[in-house]
Design a binder for these strands. Structure first.
Lengths: 235, 235
DNA sequence: GGTCGGAGTTGACCTGCGTCAAGGCGCACC
DNA sequence: GGTGCGCCTTGACGCAGGTCAACTCCGACC
């Protein structure tokens, strides 16, 4: 199997591959071939190993990063040392936009969960695309607006739903996203717990209770089968 | 005292006033006089009484709204009936951008807390400004990015800090924002409690405890004097 | 300025979830 | 394929904060 990742540097062939990669990024959908080509020529592709920190709190992160393959976890650490998972990004998603929009030290961390192909774009370049290509800015607005909606939902779930409700809603949400009732958790249970604002112990107990009720079935440490989605929807 | 609100309809004088008003909106900062004038001619100004709902969950809210004066509370209601205050907007802020960016039924509510001057902009018009005037899109990106940061902080505070910590951080945040240690709460204590993910009872108890400690002084139902900001910063 | 309703306060109670602790186990890396 | 670390689970326990209830009080509106 020829591992010829598009994100590696090289000659003209590599550039053509890069263009194909950039063309697939939602953020750049709707641009002309020439515009794609311009962007591709300024992009810095890289294969990042698993568990690599992309940037941390306090860093002046100088790049907008686009994930081609792999998964990235974004989290913060509160003063009291508590780790809070903010969101998990996958193929086609971008991160580091905050520094592009308003340069400042980051207040959160980003780390790869799998080996990932990630392209980096310089701030100045990205700003110029935002100002010159309205569709890029508009797509970014769509994304940020959607993220804001998700995060707001996270807030209201934290106080409006109890542990069981949040866990059930999370599982049903995954099933909806994947269009099936059996799936692998995208992140470790520890991280799921953090994302839901719970301790791992509480998550474990709720899942065990769901399994006792015959609503779900757990397999290994990642696989989840939803047996009674309706019951889960009713919390 | 001549109450000649700029946001009322009328002849050319009113249009000039409208332009002045639009020119002051951060979202439109950096536009030329002509561009401002174009926007002003499409804007629908209105004086909205206190406690008026601007839109509710389920509505297809057809306008981007810009607040010239007054205060607007944005909140959601969870399935379990819990009210969660998401944010409070004031002079110069806008709301309803979500529907402009991705038309869909709203999932939250917006209500005025004071009599407010609010201008409405049609979706289609706003979209055209976003696509034609990059600075408008960029400013909106700045705003959404800042809101996202605030909301993410809300999330981590919910699970990372206890009630006292959240209340203290909120008070210190207000003092920073107003640059003084004595101020009026921008919203009712009930709404503050909701914003912080607490019950009114718990908020009341924490404030009482702070007062017992000599850290703050409460006056009437809205005035707060911070007597020992350092103690509050240490939770 | 009166009056009425909702906001705020205070108290008592109780429970859900965090904390601490200990043990098993899976998975990643060697 | 071994092995060891860190994830996951299970149990016991305590308490922060939610709930219910009763009362006060402010302030909006007439």
């Amino acid at each position: 199997m020829d591992h010829h990742h598009g994100c590696e540097s090289g000659g003209d062939g590599a550039h053509a591959e890069l263009e194909a990669l950039v063309a697939k990024v939602p953020l750049f959908a709707g641009l002309t071939h020439e515009q794609i080509s311009e962007i591709a020529s300024r992009v810095r592709p890289r294969v990042v190993p698993r568990n690599q920190q992309l940037y941390g709190a306090g860093d002046i992160n100088p790049y907008l990063r686009i994930i081609h393959t792999g998964t990235v976890k974004v989290y913060r650490i509160t003063e009291s040392g508590h780790e809070q998972v903010i969101r998990v990004l996958g193929s086609g998603d971008f991160l580091g936009e905050k520094a592009v929009i308003s340069p400042s030290a980051s207040d959160h961390f980003a780390v790869t969960l799998d080996e990932s192909e990630i392209c980096s774009l310089d701030h100045e370049d990205m700003r110029s695309y935002l100002l010159r290509y309205p569709s890029v800015a508009f797509t970014m607005l769509e994304t940020l607006s959607a993220r804001l909606g998700t995060t707001e939902e996270q807030v209201s779930a934290m106080t409006g739903e109890d542990a069981a409700g949040r866990v059930a809603a999370y599982l049903v949400g995954l099933a909806d996203e994947y269009h099936r009732s059996s799936f692998l958790l995208p992140i470790s249970k520890k991280d799921v717990a953090s994302y839901l604002g719970l301790t791992p112990e509480t998550l474990s107990r709720r899942l065990a209770a769901f399994e006792d009720n015959g609503w779900i079935h757990l397999h290994g440490s990642r696989r989840v089968d939803l047996l009674d989605i309706e019951a889960l929807r009713l919390v």
